[in-house]
Design a protein around this nucleic acid. Structure first.
Lengths: 153, 153
DNA sequence: GGTGAAAAGGCTATGTA
DNA sequence: TACATAGCCTTTTCACC
């Protein structure tokens, strides 16, 4: 299982279903795909064992939790070699929900979720830019997230 | 439920648990949080009704599905008013897994998942930059994704 | 590798405090 | 509002094809 994989159409159909509803009953999928519930079960177990299915999670409406502000921040470090220590400090910030090590204009690229513009300002100035490895940042505020989905198996 | 919400500690504890494992048995949570399984059930139903819990999904290892390349692309349009038609065309591309309407350097910011650098090149040149509304793009290739989590309820 | 039926286990509704 | 219980539905197992 390195790069290419050997999922057949049934595997892919099951995976696609579960990527939209992790609790879809096996019996329903069995009817839909014209196999037995036991087969659905076996296929799912195989994909778990192969590490393709890593787990399940609930989808949460972050706005309803009060997180109204989403933004991306490109970070430049004084020295590229400080990547690991900078990352450790970023990891300690709850507001940092994603981080990427990137080529191009920035050393690190992060996604931030905050409860308000005031909080964003606070996080940016007092937490993020206070990290000693950080030389400069560039902020991209997201006003809308019209596409949000996963890859096609 | 507008912005601030009124989740108590039990709600938050349940939510945090389900955000890591949507199928955690109610009985286990009940034991852990020292309430009855029925109470767990009631709290979850309430959060569903409030729209805080929107659904469930399996977590998929995209690398094992063959998607090795992840990148962000900042898109500039000739005219900002073409946002909607450009977005429609982006939405038709399977490789575009996220899109954001942003302030700052770009009109639209997207996340792309591809199977290889060759495919990225193909998508970028023949699909993305072929969209007539697109004036220019800037690509940020992600080599690593060391932080990936959700907000703290 | 797939099936069907039976066993095990988790979820949900109800009645009660 | 929370609890305990019981019924129901889903998952899992297993012998067989």
């Amino acid at each position: 299982m390195h790069g290419t994989n050997n999922l057949d159409d049934l595997d892919k159909a099951i995976l696609k279903t579960l990527m939209e509803d992790a609790r879809r009953p096996y019996a329903e999928m069995a009817k839909q795909f014209d196999v037995s519930p036991a087969t659905i079960h076996v296929r799912i177990e195989k994909m778990k064992a192969a590490g393709i299915i890593e787990g399940t999670e609930v989808v949460v409406n972050t706005k309803k939790l009060g997180y109204d502000v989403c933004c991306f921040i490109g970070i430049n470090l004084y020295a590229a070699r400080d990547y690991h220590s900078a990352l450790e400090k970023l990891n300690a910030l709850d507001e940092v929900v994603e981080a990427y090590y990137t080529t191009g204009a920035y050393n690190i690229f992060v996604k931030l979720m905050c409860r308000s513009i005031e909080e964003l300002q606070h996080v940016l100035i007092d937490k993020l830019q206070a990290i000693e490895e950080v030389q400069s940042t560039e902020t991209l505020i997201s006003l809308q997230n019209p596409i949000s989905r996963n890859v096609n198996p």
